[in-house]
């Protein structure tokens, strides 16, 4: 992440307000489809895998949420190894629409971390 909640991609697109607005809209809709607390946990868990901050404290979380976070972590480097059973568990917890949003958000969070690590905003002159 770059700045207060702004991703490296958003920062890189500063010179193209239309494309930046489209990206922000997509990102906002992906986040709005899930509970804000879960969104924050997913982003934190994924960022921690990339060495970008501490992992979330899961002590007070229910088992289903912990499973969802474990799944989000798997998205970062092991996406082809995720099993049908793992997916079914998260889908059962979130429902099909929620699982779709979760999949998009977790994958986007991973990609945004990678964009930050490669220095996208700086390369784009921001």
């Amino acid at each position: 992440m770059t700045g207060a909640g702004r991703s490296a991609v958003q920062a890189a697109l500063a010179a193209d307000p239309v494309l930046a607005a489209h990206y922000a809209d997509f990102r906002a809709h992906a986040e709005a489809a899930l509970d804000p607390a879960l969104v924050a946990l997913i982003r934190q868990a994924v960022a921690a895998v990339h060495g970008m901050g501490a992992a979330p404290d899961e002590a007070g979380l229910d088992a289903a949420t912990r499973s969802a976070l474990a799944y989000a972590r798997r998205m970062t480097f092991e996406h082809t190894a995720i099993t049908d059973a793992e997916a079914a568990a998260v889908a059962a917890h979130l429902g099909e629409p929620g699982f779709v949003a979760f999949s998009v958000l977790a994958a986007l969070a991973d990609a945004e971390c990678r964009a930050a690590l490669v220095g996208l905003a700086e390369l784009a002159g921001e």
Binding site: V9, A111, L123
Partner: peptide, 12 residues
């Protein structure tokens, strides 16, 4: 820089 920004968006 503008092309790199688009490339970065695309790869993301």
């Amino acid at each position: 820089p503008a092309q790199i920004a688009e490339l970065g968006l695309g790869v993301t």
